[in-house]
């Protein structure tokens, strides 16, 4: 087993613009291996943009993002390998509708990692069991409930054995009665020691699993604290206002 760097994700004075719009401003963030970071903040504050920069879905203009020591964008091949260490779960699941649950999970295993069909299916079924839906393996996404689809999306991302899992509001497109089953799967991942960076407004989840809460506003991180400190008494008035609206 090789030595993994202690810091899974390192973001140094990151700046990003959409045209003239300064969307991320001097972001500094270190995510230790095995830690769980919850990112929250009002709509439009740049949470999605930040998380999408970390897995290379969005380019950035200034500063640096390091994944396990590799700087994203420095060199094409190294960047591609580093990106592979991240798994991403989207708000809208984004499963491939024309593929079965199993094929959704095996596609990248076979095409990116070059695994045989048998190997890929065994791995996929292992992860489908972990999200508690192995029996749906041969169904198509449209035949599943939203909660089930999101659990498949988590399994699909886990198949590539990422070192960091990124979540962008994984439960906010779900009916209330399905939120818990997805959060339970995520809590399971956290208990297995997975490094997680999660944009969510599920404050119960943050309290239970996070060891760091990051609050963003207008492209900046304006508060970064342990859940206890954050919920106990956020310093910044904007953060306090946000907490009040979301908790009541």
């Amino acid at each position: 087993m090789q030595d993994l760097p202690k810091t899974a994700v390192q973001i140094r004075t990151l700046n990003k613009w959409y045209g003239a719009f300064h969307v991320l401003k001097n972001i500094d963030l270190h995510v230790q291996r095995g830690s769980r970071v919850v990112v929250c903040g009002p709509s439009g504050s740049g949470k999605s943009t930040l998380i999408r920069c970390i897995n290379g879905l969005e380019a950035y203009q200034d500063g640096a993002i390091l994944l396990g020591g590799t700087m994203l964008g420095s060199q094409a091949k190294a960047t591609a390998l580093a990106r592979r260490q991240t798994g991403m779960v989207f708000q809208g699941f984004n499963l491939f509708p024309h593929l079965t649950v199993l094929s959704n999970c095996t596609l990248a295993l076979r095409r990116v990692l070059g695994k045989s069909r048998k190997e890929a299916e065994d791995l996929a079924l292992h992860h489908l069991r972990k999200v508690k839906i192995p029996e749906q393996a041969h169904k198509y996404p449209a035949q599943l409930s939203g909660g089930q689809q999101q659990r498949v999306a988590i399994a699909r991302a886990m198949c590539l054995s990422p070192r960091v899992m990124l979540f962008d509001e994984p439960t906010s497109a779900l009916d209330p009665e399905m939120i818990k089953e997805v959060l339970d799967v995520m809590i399971g991942l956290a208990q297995d020691g997975m490094t997680m960076l999660c944009v969510t407004h599920e404050m119960g989840f943050a309290r239970e699993v996070a060891d760091q809460v990051v609050f963003m506003d207008e492209g900046r991180i304006i508060e970064q604290a342990s859940p206890k400190a954050f919920f106990g008494g956020a310093v910044h008035p904007r953060a306090r206002m946000f907490l009040e609206t979301i908790l009541h």
Binding site: R84, G87, M88, F90, G92, N94, R111, A157, L160
Partner: peptide
């Protein structure tokens, strides 16, 4: 939907 390409990219396809 745009999410399809994004999912493919996130999976390193």
């Amino acid at each position: 939907p745009k999410g399809q390409q994004e999912a493919a990219k996130a999976l390193s396809l």
